[in-house]
Design a protein around this nucleic acid. Sequence first.
DNA 1: GTATTCACTGGGCAATCTGCTCAGCGGTAC
DNA 2: GTACCGCTGAGCAGATTGCCCAGTGAATAC
Lengths: 160, 160
Amino acid sequence: MAIDQLDGRIIVLLAREPRIGVLEMSRRLGVARGTVQARLDRLQSNGVIRGFGPQVDPAALGYPVTAFATLQIRQGQGADVRAHLATVPEMLELLTTTGSGDMLCRLVARSNADLQRVIDRVVGFDGIVRASTAIVMENPVPLRIIPLVEQAAGDDSEGT
Amino acid sequence: MAIDQLDGRIIVLLAREPRIGVLEMSRRLGVARGTVQARLDRLQSNGVIRGFGPQVDPAALGYPVTAFATLQIRQGQGADVRAHLATVPEMLELLTTTGSGDMLCRLVARSNADLQRVIDRVVGFDGIVRASTAIVMENPVPLRIIPLVEQAAGDDSEGT
DNA sequence: GTATTCACTGGGCAATCTGCTCAGCGGTAC
DNA sequence: GTACCGCTGAGCAGATTGCCCAGTGAATAC
């Protein structure tokens, strides 16, 4: 899935000014409205743009503490553990990583003390052998995609 | 900061159907349009809703490999390392965690082989003492906020 | 008890944008 | 040469937005 420079400019523009409309984008980019619309449709059906959901800040919701927990899972218990973790609202993201039955999950909590409660709930399940947690102190680079998009749009040398 | 049930239903509705407009939301929620508009404005100025940027899938851009790297930083080199890491487009997120000078960063790459290049670029900097990498295999729970919002709103809002 | 403040309602308005259509144009593939 | 494809510029009806207003009910302040 290669994107060209116009695709890249569309995505970057959207990332910088999300409330912008198709018409205004076509003006800024100097192309016809239909073109922008067609590109956007294509980017979405390609899955490059998954959606435009609201970006919610857990801290503003009252969950200022973020932590990453690495879980070691007992062989064959993966599915059960996933189902368990999915029931924890404070578990925002779950990934499985290399290593024997390892999972990485992103947690939030109302305070450091509350984090203990969340972790207890997370690890209070049979298939979890061991857990280690790292509390996030700062977030110097929040999740970003603009640099990657710009790079992907720059070298469209790769074929499909 | 504390959101009520109506706020929660607005956020959840937006998360489920981002293309929905204020008018349609007011219809679904059974409240006046002005109310939804006022709530949305408040949520955004509160910082609860940071924005509506496009959610871009790195895999669809040609970067199907995700990894987490834990970096150990030499004392006092934190700022320099951050500046260095910020220049790497494949570095999507950077967090500092508990522990002596530890950073956690999310990386993507075009392939496992390409990941080596990315890691080399990331760790090819003076202030980084040690790095360990975990490759992401699956993503059973992509970043989500709906369960947390529902808990924070203390309600049981149903979608469409 | 009374006055004030506040959020929500329901209505209306002009301006804008969207979704859709169309024909024309240039480049590319065959 | 011809067919295909993406982009352009235009137009249209319908919907939505941003903004205003007065009225209401409830909670709060005095």
